[in-house]
């Protein structure tokens, strides 16, 4: 009955999130750029430590999730903790900055932004 579990960890996600499955995370987008504002302190949850270490430069939420191997929604909860205590700051995408209750997805992007995207892509 013994089963090899070398790819798993004993940490269950509800322990990582302290029992929370959601927070008011509308403020954090999947590509919000996270920057740490302080160094990790001893005794900090290991995920928080890793986030603070990997975000010395801006890093998108999805990248953090991929590196931690955790679901994006769980990472958002962890990020909320750090945001609330001022340990990180978040740079939100301008397209998601003003979430409107209406069909926000049909809103077309600003032409000046698109122009910059084109220039950036041409340089590739």
């Amino acid at each position: 009955m013994t089963r090899s579990v070398d790819r798993e960890d004993p940490d269950r996600l509800y322990i990582v999130t302290g029992g929370r499955s959601r927070v008011d995370e509308s403020s954090i987008d999947s590509v919000s750029l996270i920057v740490s504002e302080c160094d990790p302190t001893p005794g900090m949850q290991s995920e928080h430590v890793k986030i603070l270490r990997m975000c010395t430069g801006p890093k998108a939420v999805v990248e953090i999730a991929a590196e931690l191997g955790l679901p994006v929604s769980v990472v958002k909860i962890l990020l909320c903790d750090l945001l609330d205590t001022g340990r990180i700051t978040a740079r939100h995408p301008s397209s998601a900055a003003a979430p409107t209750p209406g069909p926000a997805k049909t809103r077309l992007p600003d032409p000046t932004v698109l122009k910059q995207v084109l220039v950036g892509l041409e340089k590739l």
């Binding site: 009955m1 013994t2 089963r3 090899s4 579990v5 070398d6």
Partner: peptide, 8 residues
């Protein structure tokens, strides 16, 4: 019995 999981 043996323990349920064995961590490698």
């Amino acid at each position: 019995a043996r323990s349920g999981r064995r961590w490698t």
